[in-house]
Design a binder for these strands. Structure first.
Lengths: 121, 121, 121, 121
DNA sequence: GTGGTCTAGACCACC
DNA sequence: GTGGTCTAGACCACG
């Protein structure tokens, strides 16, 4: 299931992308599984069709999914290794950590936060 | 000194805000110190007056600075202890880390990144 | 309908803020209703886009409305119960009444003024 | 004693005017009493001489004080009856009360507030 | 079409 | 000199 935060700063299509990638990593969608159709997903999420289309299109550019015209959108075999998205995510972490450091957050606080997050998985 | 990255995705006024907060935390500006006038700073940064104004205005909303019309903008006494900003920054880190985890980033990668950032200070 | 007094001392964006809050309290705009777009409203009021934008932006800070970029500005669910705004308004009354008292205004004059204002509603 | 709120929205010279009027009404300064010199008062308040000068100048226009060149500024005999300032103060109350009404403040709340203020005198 | 950001001007009140 | 408000444009990302 995909949940969107419409009030968030991150664009809707980015949220969709991230959550699809997440679901693939989690194994909810295996390679060659068919994703929900663009129109179905758009209806479920209460979102414009173009928004889902953009998300899927960029996922395809990133090699996470592939499209078969008239059939649907499927998970790529190499999806798990998508380095581009991973790099971007790490870069975002770097930015937010830098910002937090400038607010006076100490190293220990980061380490604790990361431990907590990994414990909750 | 404030440095701007005009090609960054983060708005200029946000960059100014962050760096002012950083300078205050570093002690470059002490409580009740006068910040450069918005016009002076705008000229130095090669930026529009309104952009600096917005940055200062939002810093005022956040309790980091206070304004005396006709006099200038000054650092608040409680600015150093502003826990709210710190909490928000940590929350942002949490979000970005969660996102990165879902992209497949492993715990070690976070730890390395944090070590690197603290080494560079 | 929003009416502006361009010759008033109170800034235009403050007038817009007050009247939107008033309309929300009156129930003209219910929670999750979409407000007029900033461009439409600016055109209707004969005012600059940025002025309306500032009004909406500050209403968002105050929790009266929320924004979905690319969609519009909507009334918050908790807007009607916003005690903070009420407290601030009462505080402003207190200040002005104190000032008036020091000018020699008697208690009866306040009571008469309040009666008149409530009669006109 | 005059106390200023530099962070307030009301201009410094208005605050000085109001407090002088208040002190006169309270009887701290009687008719023909000499007020502190402009420079003395400016120094005490940590304020620019021009600011005090403006306050006194407008008080003189309003008939609250009169100036004797080379001697000083003195309280007028008719100061207690200054209707102009009183009208302005009442007008300010009206504005703030209107604003508060639109925020949902009820009549009783105003009456209670006024009772409280008059009890504290 | 929507809001978000930014620019380059302007005028005003205050200090 | 300072900040506060406002205008009339512009470009961008998003839906």
């Amino acid at each position: 299931m995909i949940l969107l935060d419409f009030s968030a700063k991150t664009p809707i299509y980015e949220q969709i992308k991230e959550q699809v990638v997440f679901l693939v990593h989690k194994g909810v969608y295996a390679p060659d599984d068919k994703l929900p159709s663009i129109r179905t997903l758009a209806a479920e999420l209460g979102v414009n069709v173009n928004t889902v289309k953009r998300a899927f299109s960029e996922l395809e550019d990133g090699g996470v999914v592939y499209t078969q015209a008239g059939k649907g959108v499927f998970v790529s075999k190499g999806a798990i290794l998508n380095e581009e998205l991973k790099e971007k995510a790490l870069s975002d972490v770097k930015v937010s950590v830098c910002s937090a450091i400038s607010m006076g957050v100490k190293k220990d606080e980061f380490l604790i936060l990361i431990e907590e997050l990994f414990d909750n998985i």
